[in-house]
Amino acid sequence: MGALGPEGLNVMAPMGPEGLDAFLLAVIAGALVVVFGAVYAACFAFGRLFRSQILMQVAYVCFALLIGTVYVLSTSLHLEGIWNVLMVLLLVAYFVAPRMIWRLTAATHE
């Protein structure tokens, strides 16, 4: 059943005490994905607002952390196939969205 792929849930099968570390990592990573996504967006927006190079660099550091978090999420859950495609899409969306929203905000406030 392609959806999750048998692999998808299988990887969580060995969830005994050892699988639990992976689980803990996964939930923390899941939470941090949204946090870093938002901090990146906020730093990016403030960077644009104040025309600050430093803030922009902080934003990109946050995005690098976001990539790292998504990587942890993917490996700790042993994601495969379509689920890794989803993770890449997520990264692209989180990278592009603040830029597009900024342009849109600026344009609507003309």
Binding site: V34, A93, A97, I101
Partner: peptide
């Protein structure tokens, strides 16, 4: 995975407004 995107949009917008 997409549901937080509107929230991110609000962050950017709020910063712009400020």
């Amino acid at each position: 995975a997409l549901e937080p995107v509107p929230l991110v949009a609000m962050v950017v917008h709020a910063v712009y407004d400020s």
